[in-house]
Structure formats: C-alpha cells, structure tokens
Design a protein around this nucleic acid. Structure first.
Length: 494
RNA sequence: GGCCCUAUCGUCUAAUGGUUAGGACACGGCCUUUUCAAGGCUGUAAUCAGGGUUCGAUUCCCUGUAGGGUCACCA
C-alpha cells in the first residue's frame, strides 16, 4: 500500500527527481541552487550568466543560492581568481546564502569515497592496470593508481527543464575515473557529493555540462542521492559562435564595472541573453527580473554577447535614474582623470549638479565620460576655449560683422539678468526674442561658439547656465576682442 | 570520428497549422533643431535545404546541411 502511494508520488514528481523522502521538501518550495565556478581565470560573461540565472531562480522561489568554489584542481586554481569571483558577485549584487570551497571539504570526499569502495561500487585500479589501459590507448592519463567507478553500463535518462528529455547510453563511458586517490577527488565526484550534501535541488549550469550529466547521475545513484532537476543553459557565444572564453576576448565582469557600467544594467542584459518575458518589455530592475524571470522560457540555442546592446540597456537604466543622484559620481570621475589633474580643473558640487544632466544625455556609460575628457570635449567647461575667430561666423554671413553685432547684444542682455534668474530659462528668455527676430542661427551660433569654441556642443543657454554669469560675459568679450583683432589685421592687408 | 545539443532579419528575439512573419540593438532616411545629444516618424533586412503529413507548414515528422558542445587522473 505504502509503496503504491510512493509510486504514485514518483509518477507525479518524477520530473523533479526520484527520492520520495526529498520530494516532500521540494513541495514545500525548498529550492536550492548553486553557482560553482572554478577559480582558474577571471569571471566573464561565459560563466557568470549561469550564476545570474541560478540566482534569479533561487530568489523568485524564496530559495537558497549557494556559491561553491570548485578548486579541486590545485594546480590551476588561484586565490586571486577566487577573489575576482567574490568581487564580481558582490558588485553584481548576486548575494549568496552560503559559500564553500571544495579544497576545504577533503574529509567529506574521503569519507564517501571509502564508503563507496567498501560497498564495491567503486574500485581502486592499480598502476599496472592503468598502464595497460594506456597501452590500449584507452586514455592518455598517467600510469598510476586511480579510483574508478564501476559503470553499470545502462541507459540514463533525465528531464532537462530547458531541453526536455535527454537520453544517453553510458556504456561507452567505461569505468570512468572519479578520483586520483581518496584524498584527491576530481570534478565528477566532488560536484555530485556536494550537490547531494548541500541539498541542491536545481542544477542550473551551462550546456557544456550536458554530456557530463549521465555519469554524474550514475554516481548520484551509487550514493543513494536524490537526482536534482537539471536546467542546461545555452552557451554565451563569441562573435564566431564558439563558446565564449578569455581567448575570444571575453572581458571580466569587473572590467565592465571599471569602465562604468551599472550593475543592474549588466544583470538586465545578461538575463535577456537567452531569455525573454514573452512581452515587449526589455528593461527590468532587479525586482522585476526576479518576479518575471521564467526558466522554462529560456532559449535553447546559444547567443552572441553583443556589447552594443549592453550599452543601450545601460543607457536606458541611466535615463531612469535622477541625474542629481549621479552628480557626485560624475564629479569624482571627472576630477580623478589625468587631464583634470594636469589642468587643475575645479568642479564644485553645485557645478556637478548642473553638468550631470547635460553629460548623461550624451553618454551610454560612465566610461563614455572618460572618452569625452580624452577627446577634450569637456575642456570648455573648465577653461576659456581657444579657437579661430572665423569660426564665430554663421554660415550664411559673409563676414564677422553680424556676429560682432549679435554678441554685443547678447553681452548686454545677459549682463542685465539678475543673478538669481541666471538659469537656462532666464537666459533663454533674455536672448530668444532677439534670436527669433534676427534669425536663430545668426545669433545662436556665434554665441555658442564663443562659449564652447567647438563646432559641436550643447546649446548656448545650457552652456551659459553651467558656466555662470561672469565666465559667460568674459567669453563673449574675448570673442569680441578676437573679432576686432581679426578685422584690424584684415584692413592692414596690402 | 562517436555521442549529445541547436537552427526566424547582421545580432538578441516574438508568433501561429492560414499573419503584410512582430519587437529591440545596429545601420540608412526624414522631421524637430544654431551645432551636438536627446526625441518623434520611417526604411533595408529573416523562417538553413530537400522530402513527407496536410486543403494549407516557418510551425509537426524524416533526412541532409551547418554550427556548437563533449569525449582528461580540467572544471
């Protein structure tokens, strides 16, 4: 009778794994996911996206998200890379509930390895056997003793949340190695035991692990562990459609932080790579992502990482933030630049408040501000510009005389603005009617050029408001002097 | 090569057994504008191929092709 009920439960929840005992836990919503990178390189889009998905899935199910550092390969694992993983997750805001290092779990691996050996499910093959295997060309491994899994050689089937049912014949795997010795487990054993011991219910990882899954299921069965639910994510691809890797120019997540991307924008973009909500919404904040994310709507095919679109997503996030909140970030970004130090730029908090919205409209990321600085496109905010007097001439004019006349007017009109009306609106009110009457370009071009010394820049009202009354008048006077000396030089020509 | 996965604009993707195959990025044009940026409108561009099933297939099936993954005492 009881077994009948169990069979019934199994049938209903078979897709979520066998073990009857654990099924109850899962029905109570005890989702546990993990992100298990190995610290053998900087964390990049190719691997951290699986972390993003595992995180979103755990959070939306009010479950647990575990970080597990897979450093059983002591030769390749490095502390600096582990630090980079932690830094990256911290910056991205992927908060984990627990963290483990496999290098600190040797006792556990040994205990279970010995148990399996005692149960005869695993055996130690001698150096001679390994040598014989190598001679047969079965594997190129070293000729020393190893621990091999006694393969029952059967068909293994599992349900993948993303791909559906997948079946493998494990016969051609042979008796695969799961440890070099009881104190040196390798990936296929450590992963399985840890997932078991940590109660991982959903293994969310890259597609490159699909073919590892059957052998891991075999080990799970030997361990008497419940089979978790698998979700194999499509890979993030480089431009040539191969798996993204460092060699393919995959950049570290911390690189995107350093060049001024917003964390939520990156999270948003990564979630959208391979997933979509089925609506036309593309911009999500963290909470929206957690709420809307749906593992079953994840794409099956790999997706190319497109930095252009990432930049667009970042810009959209930027647009949704009040510029005033970003002003101090922008200020320190500018002041810490080499050029700002060399030229001793001064930027007050108030100045930054005025500058922020103007700058933000022109960039997609904070890093673009650095580019503007390098291109000397910000210089005119900090010092009087140098330019050729002829540039002050509006294209429809034949000489500089109209420019001089309009600048004279502007100087007087601006000088008459009371200090407390010195803002974009007040300035525009003082100039606009005149510009309308005289022709906008005729008036505004010379004025803007006097202020910025550039063919391209924000409009003169905005510039004047940022520069302040004193500097604005000074620059107009300077332009006037420039026109005069140019005219004098001309009349003296033979 | 064996095994496995995948296949819609250049890229990310939506959709349905019957649609003018939709959106976004990028690209082009136009409008707005003193210039730039922003904004608005708009254009170019896709169902890998061949067979079935069907009144009808891009959608379901088969084969092929292409791409990718994996075949370690790496993870």
């Amino acid at each position: 009778m009881i077994s009948g009920i169990r069979a019934f439960l199994k049938g209903n929840f078979g897709a979520k794994g066998h073990a009857g005992a654990k099924t109850g836990d899962r029905r109570r919503g005890g989702v546990v996911t993990r992100f298990a990178p190995s610290p053998t390189g900087l964390l990049h889009a190719g691997n951290y996206r699986t972390g993003v998905f595992a995180y979103l899935y755990a959070r939306q199910n009010k479950g647990k998200f575990i970080l597990r550092i897979e450093d059983t390969d002591t030769a390749r694992s490095k502390k600096e890379y582990e630090d980079n993983i932690v830094d990256s997750l911290k910056w991205l805001g992927l908060e984990y509930d627990e963290m483990y290092r496999q290098s600190e779990r040797g006792g556990l691996y040994r205990q279970y390895l010995e148990k399996l050996i005692a149960e005869g499910k695993v055996y130690v093959s001698s150096a001679e056997e390994e040598t014989a295997r190598a001679a047969k060309g079965e594997n190129p491994g070293p000729r020393k003793s190893a621990i091999r899994f006694k393969n029952p050689n059967k068909k293994v089937r599992f349900d993948d949340l993303i791909r559906g049912e997948i079946e493998f014949d494990t016969t051609d795997l042979g008796d695969f190695v799961i440890a070099k010795s009881v104190t040196e487990p390798i990936f296929h054993f450590a992963v399985v035991l840890d997932d078991f011991l940590m109660g991982v219910t959903h293994v969310i990882r890259g597609e490159d692990h699909i073919s590892n899954t059957p052998r891991q299921i075999l080990v799970m069965e030997a361990l008497g562990a419940p089979i978790p639910t698998y979700a194999h994510l499509p890979l993030v691809l480089a431009h040539d459609r191969s798996k993204l890797s460092k060699r393919h120019g995959a950049k570290a997540i911390t690189h995107y932080r350093d060049i001024g991307f917003m964390r939520d924008a990156l999270l948003n973009y990564m979630a959208l790579l391979g997933w979509n909500p089925g609506t036309e919404q593309e911009i999500f904040d963290r909470a929206g992502l957690i709420k809307t994310f749906d593992l079953s709507k994840v794409q099956k095919g790999g997706a190319i990482f497109n930095e252009e679109k990432l930049r667009w997503v970042n810009k959209e996030h930027l647009k949704r933030v009040d510029p005033a909140l970003l002003a101090s970030d922008i200020r320190s970004r500018i002041l810490s630049s080499e050029r700002a130090r060399d030229l001793k730029w001064n930027l007050t908090d108030e100045g930054a408040q005025r500058l922020a919205p103007v700058l933000l409209e022109r960039v997609s990321t904070f890093g673009d501000i650095d580019a503007l600085i390098t291109a000397q496109d910000l210089d005119y905010y900090f010092a009087e510009p140098a330019y050729d007097a002829l540039s002050l001439k509006w294209k429809e004019d034949v000489d500089l005389a109209p420019a001089a006349r309009h600048l004279d007017y502007a100087k007087a009109a601006l000088a008459g603005i009371p200090d407390k009306r010195w803002d974009e609106e007040g300035i525009k009110a003082a100039i606009w009617p005149y510009a309308e009457a005289e022709g906008r370009g005729n008036v505004l071009w010379p004025l803007r050029y006097a202020l910025s010394g550039k063919d391209r820049s924000p409009n003169p009202f905005t510039l004047a408001a940022i520069l302040g009354k004193v500097a604005t008048i000074q620059r107009i006077e300077q332009a006037l002097r420039l026109i005069k000396t140019t005219a004098d030089a001309k009349t003296q020509l033979p």
